[in-house]
Design a protein around this nucleic acid. Structure first.
Lengths: 223, 223
DNA sequence: ACCTGAACACCGTTCAAGT
DNA sequence: ACCTGAACACCGTTCAAGT
């Protein structure tokens, strides 16, 4: 628990860093070198302190990630929700998607063991929005949770796959887009051929989202 | 390139292991200790050989994973495709889902940089099935690829989130299911309360899949 | 109260030397 | 032809000692 104000009666060695500085440096490091490069040791080096010093300000690396995540989500601005329930669901899902697209490592962290449960309440407004819209559209509370889960799976999947499909090597082929497919064994794949790369670059998130949401809102078993 | 048959004129030190043995041991290790525990060093220990020996049989760890993945997918049996195009898409997607559910680390690997592009053609029949079904249902080739991508995102997301939601600690709460939510700020979340855990345990994959596929098959811009 | 280096228990991978 | 240990360049984290 470092303090930024200097209380009277303070004793001992003066701090060389603070939790706020650590979070800022972590953010800098991720944005500059990529999320894989965020290690305790590199972070300490970035701050010019000993690696073990960090353990006086954060519990461990997982704790650091939760702190970072809450900080990031809290600073997103919350758009005014549309009046129409369906539009409200779509807007919240899109906000969630765009937030993750801007910081794909967050998706990585959020899929990890129970991380969502560690978020501050202020970070959960997107979940709340989706549940609210779904219920206003006529779903039962349970149906709304089912819809949220579907949207969450689709959104996280899109973010993770697309984040990992970054052309790590311009010359190397993207997913199944390969020089030549056997036209006898996989005719449709062969017909697409190298066009897969172009098609995969398209943003089809909104299209799939609408299909999913409309289908789940229409599902009679959740009304 | 180790050989299992002993050719005449063989010279040099005899092999202590083989690619096949390495793959079998890797599989054993994953199934027994979990996918995170698959390291080159542990794998070598499992086989009772020096860690560096493995580099004579596989190029590197990534190469090992591709080998393992192709081996796993090839041994899955391929069910007879339904006649109805929509059912064909659903069946192939479900086969893909079930295969990944049985080996969630495969989803982890497949989302990583261009891994799908490294799969053997024989492993891509599920992709082919989905494209074929979508085109038979009236979509253009481009529309079929869009549908596949939507299904892939949803499927991978479901697998990854659920795999990571394993109760790592029985006492710890699952995702947003927490003791108490502020009923003023997040009323719907608060109303669900601790029931989230029960709801999240439900398998809602087929429901979401149908919603997504039906919506995308109906999309007029892809016909 | 806070910082530090040494140490522990790990990684993947390369390389020269050995059989 | 194949295997090996030593070595390199990393990890996260603990702990005793220092200011």
């Amino acid at each position: 628990m470092p303090r930024t104000t200097a209380p009277q009666g303070r004793t001992g060695r003066p701090p060389v860093t603070s939790r706020a500085e650590i979070l800022a440096a972590a953010r800098r490091l991720i944005d500059r070198d990529g999320w894989e490069k965020l290690t305790i040791r590199r972070l300490a080096a970035e701050l010019g302190v000993g690696a073990t010093t960090l353990y006086h300000h954060i519990r461990n690396k997982e704790d650091l990630l939760v702190l970072l995540l809450n900080h990031y989500i809290e600073q997103l601005e919350r758009p005014a929700p549309p009046a129409d329930p369906r539009e409200r669901v779509l807007a919240a899902a899109t906000a969630m998607h765009d937030a993750l697209a801007g910081w794909p490592w967050a998706a990585e962290v959020l899929t990890a063991d129970g991380f969502i449960g560690l978020l501050d309440e202020s970070a959960l407004w997107m979940v709340e929005e989706i549940l609210a819209g779904a219920e206003d559209a006529g779903l039962t509370p349970d149906g709304a949770v089912r819809l949220f889960r579907g949207v969450w799976y689709y959104t996280v999947g899109e973010i993770l796959v697309r984040a990992h499909t970054r052309n790590r090597d311009e010359s190397a082929p993207l997913p199944p887009f390969r020089a030549a497919f056997d036209a006898d064994r996989v005719p449709h794949l062969a017909a697409i051929g190298t066009r897969w790369g172009t098609l995969a670059a398209e943003n089809t998130y909104p299209e799939g989202l609408r299909a999913l949401v409309d289908g789940l809102l229409r599902n009679p078993s959740t009304h």
